[in-house]
Amino acid sequence: MTAALEVRNLSVTFGRDRVLRDLSFSVDAGKTLAIIGPNGAGKTVLFRALIGALPYEGEVVWAPGTRIGYVPQKLDIERDLPLTGYDFLGAKAHVTGDAPEEIARVLAAVSLDAEVAARPIGTLSGGQFQRLLVAFALMGRPTVLLFDEPTAGVDQPGEESIYALFRDLQRAHGFSLLLISHELTLVYRYADTVLCLSRSEACIGPPIEVLTTQRLQEMYGTEVKFHDHAHGNAGH
């Protein structure tokens, strides 16, 4: 199995505050890594270091020819920004050198109507905008997708359908998936490997090993209501 990403001894420091300390892990090509942890554990910081938006110490090695699709946690868009979904996707097509037909393909992949894509992006609902961001990430045929809380602000049926969408897209395109999530039930179901970040120590392993009641309690410092599927009861 070839590695899509190798991270060795990654540390990120803001002033005196060391947010990430000597983090090492790898992601195999075509696999899904879920990153969990309490607020302030450095999940988004990790992503921003991986895409080169933050200075860091240590090594971040992407496989040769890696193309990254990134879906950020939230974007602050003015409601009256005169920019339609088509403008936004068209700009990406222009930068990545894709044919304009790609736009229709990615919109179909995320089930977003042409009528919605023609509206200014500031007027879209949370779920519609989220799908547009996923479509944007899919342009340029990425080999790795990074999702920062892809379902924050999306209702529960919407959450399920976004995760199902990731799985279908991953099957169709074979990209590696890194996702930050608080939805432990969905993480359990979809991730191959779980990386848990906390202020004390990081841990990594398959969901069945990492997502135990005891581990979660250590990580979050409080009891976490989570029932894994081995006990047959999904919930969060």
Partner: peptide, 8 residues
């Protein structure tokens, strides 16, 4: 729209 999206 986003410097991070631009970078990636």
């Amino acid at each position: 729209v986003s410097q991070d999206l631009a970078r990636t």
